[in-house]
Design a binder for these strands. Structure first.
Length: 558
DNA sequence: CTGGGGATGGGGCCC
DNA sequence: GGGGCCCCATCCCCA
């Protein structure tokens, strides 16, 4: 009574759904590429994924272990059981795949890779094939064993170059690398047999592995699991355990780390490197070019406004953000360039479905069209995606070629990096004027005075922070769009908007927000509370900012 | 069509 | 680093 093709059909359907982003409930971030997938599928494929998807919708993978090209192959494998051929030299590709598969505890794939490598007549040396593919070319890096106990300690603090302490060079032996496979040999035979890993993980102290830095923003249901066991700093690593960011906040942490890591890798040509000129060119209001995209929707939770160009939240598989698309062109050694032009089945199929436009429509399931952000690999010719395959994430505009996207991105960075110093200076002057009496009053309680604008602060740290607002260069760039910030916190908050992280949910309507304050503000919609009253007309408002705009109406000449 | 209000997103900045 | 609040801008709805 077996239906012979049931499993195959099921996988096919799932893969098609993945291609369309339909019912995808998890995003995997690999470097700056975003992949959508289904938690169930990932969990069924790997114990590692299983532990991660349990807690979060966003997974940040260690970019030393896997790069977007490799992960794309891996995801294809998970959904199809097939390894799509590449132009990458076989050993190199399989080494990288093996490393990633071991890291991700994809034992079946790891076994397959080992077989392939044997066929190439070279034993896996323990060195990362990923080097050949990775954009960073970290030839000194060694594979961290996938074994929880081995990979856990001090793993991959790339921002501080602290790998040295993790695994002594040359110590990532084959045995270590393959240990998880051998420990769970049963898993080789089935993607779904990973439950045997549980004891192994726990037995190796992998509470820690699952120990996610579930920071304060965690919803209660997320906080129960193991986070307390985790040393606080562990979540800062791009390690498997931190990758599991059990909530958006922790993901953000790791993402921030990721970003700062990329910042540290400033010499790497892949990074969007805003130039000094960009920093110092003051021009008012140039950032407005992006304002139109401010109305993002919580992916999957709201219908599209239908205005196009605002689908930042829709993340199809293999998304690469605009600026990187640019930089990849300039980096012959980058993974995107070195990526082989393989035919991805999902794209072939998806392309047919989403060929009608380049990012401004919804697909038939009502979800966002997955052609919005096409990560196009070098040499990989388009299938049927429509004309504008290259889409800039910050503004959502699509372009038919990488060159045009590159040109567009250039204008972005220029626009975005204009520093509104004149603005802020004027504002500060205005504030100063209005604050003069207070300042006099605070002269003693605020002994730390800014030499530039005369503002004063209680402590030197705050003064330092303030002084940064006068700098022409801003030290914290967004790695996705290149926008620069004076405060790290502002940058990480900004990153949330790129990544669609909305940790704060309304209990009443489920709407989610990027900031606590927004939620508080929003709750007044439900409570009907209108604490802000216009002294001129008695009008009441739920939000102070709306009162302010209302007051402008009173005071404006018209 | 227009203006006002409600609601929301994002950045700056201070604590 | 995060919270909180300010601001500007925008979208949507409605009169």
């Amino acid at each position: 009574m077996d239906q012979p093709h049931h499993a195959k059909q099921l996988l096919l359907q799932l893969n098609q759904q993945r291609a369309k982003g339909f019912l995808c409930d998890v995003i995997i971030v690999v470097e700056n590429a975003l992949f959508r997938a289904h938690k169930n599928i990932l969990a069924a494929s790997s114990m590692y994924f299983k532990s991660l998807v349990l807690h979060d919708n966003l997974i940040n993978l260690d970019t030393d272990m896997v790069n977007p090209t490799i992960f794309r192959q891996i995801l294809d494998f998970i959904y199809t059981g097939k390894l799509l051929s590449t132009e990458q030299p076989g050993e190199q590709n399989f080494n990288a795949l093996l490393t990633a598969a071991s890291y991700l505890q994809l034992h079946e794939l790891a076994t397959l890779c080992r077989k392939k490598l044997k066929r190439y007549g070279k034993a896996f040396s323990g060195r990362l094939g990923i080097h050949g593919l990775g954009r960073h070319g970290r030839s000194h890096r060694l594979a961290a064993p996938p074994v929880p106990s081995a990979r856990y300690p001090g793993y991959s603090e790339r921002t501080k170059g602290s790998h040295a302490k993790e695994l002594p060079k040359g110590k990532a032996s084959d045995e270590e690398v393959f240990q998880s496979s051998s420990n769970q040999e049963n898993c080789h035979t089935s993607l779904h047999s990973s439950s045997s890993n549980t004891e192994n993980i726990n037995g190796n102290g992998c509470d820690q592995e699952l120990g996610l830095d579930l920071s304060k923003k965690s919803p209660p249901l997320f906080t129960a699991h193991a986070q307390d066991d985790l040393p606080p700093n562990e979540s800062q690593h791009g390690s498997p355990q931190s990758a599991s960011a059990a909530n958006s906040a922790s993901f953000e942490d790791s993402m921030t780390n990721h970003v700062s890591g990329l910042m540290d890798g400033a010499a790497e040509p892949m990074e969007l490197e805003p130039t000094e000129e960009n920093h110092v060119a003051p021009e008012n209001g140039q950032h407005k070019a992006h304002r139109h995209s401010s109305r993002k929707r919580d992916w999957g939770s709201k219908k599209d406004s239908g205005q196009g160009g605002e689908e930042h939240d829709s993340l199809p598989n293999g998304v690469i953000v605009g600026p990187l698309a640019k930089t990849s062109e300039h980096d012959p050694g980058g993974p995107y360039n070195s990526a082989p032009p393989y035919q991805c089945k999902e794209e072939l199929e998806n392309g047919k479905d989403n060929s009608e436009d380049s990012g401004q429509s919804e697909n038939e399931e009502g979800g966002p069209a997955s052609s919005n952000y096409i990560y196009r690999q070098e040499g990989y010719e388009s299938v049927a995606f429509g004309d504008n395959l290259y889409v800039c994430i910050p503004c959502g505009r699509g372009f038919p070629s990488s060159e045009e996207l590159n040109a567009h991105v250039e204008t972005h960075t220029e626009e975005e990096l204009y520093i509104k110093d004149e603005d802020s200076y004027c504002k500060e002057e205005a504030e100063d004027l209005s604050a003069t009496p207070n300042q006099a009053f605070n002269a003693e309680s605020r002994p730390f005075k800014c030499a530039i604008c005369e503002k004063s602060y209680k402590d030197p740290a705050t003064l330092r922070q303030h002084e940064k607002t006068h700098w022409l260069t801003r030290p914290f760039p967004c790695n996705i769009c290149g926008k620069m910030f004076t405060q790290r916190g502002t940058m990480t908050r900004h990153m949330r908007s790129h990544l669609g992280l909305k940790p704060f949910a309304c209990d009443e309507c489920g709407m989610r927000f990027t900031r606590q304050y927004r939620l508080t503000e929003h709750m007044r919609v439900h409570s009907g509370e209108k604490p802000y009253e216009c002294q001129l007309c008695g009008g009441k408002f739920t939000q102070q900012r709306n009162l302010i705009s209302h007051l402008r109406m009173h005071t404006s000449p018209t």
